[in-house]
């Protein structure tokens, strides 16, 4: 595993949908590399034959009947939207 360079930092910011100014990328890359270096300690552990933990307490995922249990609350759902129109969330144009 290697340190994060500026290109990788740019790619990660893009994947995370967080705008990072070009001149901030080297500092971000250095910071992320520092944190990753701390995580490298995990390579010292022998994990042969160990299953990755899925659930911290042994549990079976509960199921419920497949029925409509709630709904009809359009006004409440849209109440906090930065922009809503005609009963929908409104966003900038997505399709050209």
């Amino acid at each position: 595993m290697s340190a994060i360079d500026t290109d990788t930092a740019r790619k990660v910011a893009r994947l995370a949908r967080i705008r990072v100014a070009e001149d901030r990328l080297p500092a971000l890359a250095a910071e992320l590399s520092g944190i990753l270096a701390f995580m490298e300690q995990l390579n010292e552990v022998d994990v042969t034959g160990v299953e990755p933990m899925v659930s911290v307490t042994p549990m079976r995922l509960k199921r419920r009947a497949d029925v409509v249990a709630d709904g009809g609350r359009q006004a409440a759902v849209l109440a906090n939207a930065p922009e809503a129109a005609e009963g929908f969330f409104a966003v900038p144009k997505v399709v050209e």
Binding site: A13, I18, L32, I35, L42, N43, V45, V47, P52
Partner: peptide
């Protein structure tokens, strides 16, 4: 922002096993 990007990185293609799955194994231990 820092933690979201670290999380994005350790879950990204090629690093998922090396970081995330290894961490979950250590968690089991």
């Amino acid at each position: 922002r820092r933690r979201v990007m670290i999380g994005t990185y350790v879950l990204s293609a090629g690093f998922y096993d090396a970081y995330y799955n290894r961490a979950r194994k250590v968690r089991a231990l």
